[in-house]
Amino acid sequence: MTEPPDIDQRLTMFELMTDMRLFEKRAYDLFLQGLVKGTSHLSLGQEAIAAAFGAAMSENDWTFATYRGHAHTLARRVPMGPVMAELLGRDNGLMRGKGGSMHLTSVPHHMMGSYAIVGAHLPIAVGAALSASYRSSGQVAVCFFGDGTTNIGAFHEALNLAAVWQLPVVFVCENNLYMEYTAIGSVTAVARPAADRAGSYGLEPVVVDGNDADAVYAVAVAAMSRARAGDGPSLIEAVTYRHGGHSRADPGKYRPDDEVAAWLERDPIVSYRARLIAEGVDVALIEQIEAEAKAAVDAAVAEATAGAEPSADLLEMHVFADGGSSWRN
C-alpha cells in the first residue's frame, strides 16, 4: 500500500527511540533522587509509536499528546535540555516550570500540548484540523491517546465531528492493554477498544503492532496521506505495552509476570536494533547513535540541574495575553 521507510527514516526512528528510552530512564533515576517532583508517566516500551509518527510527520504537522507525552515531545525534535528542565521545575524548562511533566508543549515545534484530562485533546486536535482545512494549509493534526480514552465521551464526540467534516486528523490509540491499573478488556464492551469503534464513524478499523516501528510508520504514512488528500480522519490502534506501571506511584503489580516477561521480550528498541543490523546496518553506526543519545541525555541533565528555580514573578504571569493575571482595575 505504501512504500517502506528508507534507511534514513529507519535510522531516524532508531535514533528517536533511543533518545526517548535513555531520556526517560534517566528521568526515572532523577525521580528516585528526588530531583523530579510530582508524578510522571513513562512511555518505556511504547516508543516505536511516537518515533514512527515523528519520522512520518512533516515539520508543520501538529502533535497533540497526553500526560504520557515525553516521547511524543522528543519525537518532534524538541531539545532534551528544556524538557528535562521542565521535569525538574526549573526556569529554563520548556514552559519555565509552569506545566511540568504532564503538560509538555512546544508550539515552535508544533508540539501543541500534552493534556492530562483523558480525552480532552481529541476535540482540540479536531479544531486544529478544522483550522488546517479552512486555511487549506495542508497540515495534519496527529492525536495520541491511550486505550482508556476510548470509553470517554470526548473520544466519540471528536471522532464523529472529524468524520462528519472530513478533517485532516489522525487519531492514534496506543493500546497498552491497561487503563491505569485495570485491564482494558475487563471494562470495554468490544475486544479492540479503538478499532472496533471505527465503524461507528465510517472509518476503517486499523490495528498495527505498536512495537514494530516499520509497521507503525507504514500506517502513519497512509493515514497522513489520506488526511492530506482531503479524505478525512483515520483511527489507528497500535498495540503495545508499557514496561513499567501507569505512573511513578504504580509498580504495575496487577499484571501477570508471564505477560510482562513476554512483552519485555518484544522490546521495540532491542528488536529494531537487531533488525537493522541483520539487514546490513553497520554496528558502529548503531553504537554511534546510542553514544550520541547518551551524551545528549547527559548534557540535558547538566543543563536542567544548572537551571535556576523559577522566579517569583512567574507566578502571576501568563494568565492573559497581556502577560499578567490582572482581573480588575
Binding site: W62, F64, M112, G119, A120, H121, L122, P123, I124, A125, V126, G127, A128, A129, L130, S131, A132, Y134, R135, Q139, A141, G153, A154, E157, A158, N160, L161, V164
Partner: peptide, 18 residues
C-alpha cells in the same frame, strides 16, 4: 452535532492554530 465538548474543543484547537 449535539456535542458540546467537540464544539468547544474544536474552537480551542482552531483558536490555537490561527
Amino acid at each position: 452535532p449535539i456535542s458540546e465538548q467537540a464544539i468547544l474543543g474544536a474552537a480551542m484547537g482552531a483558536a490555537m492554530t490561527g
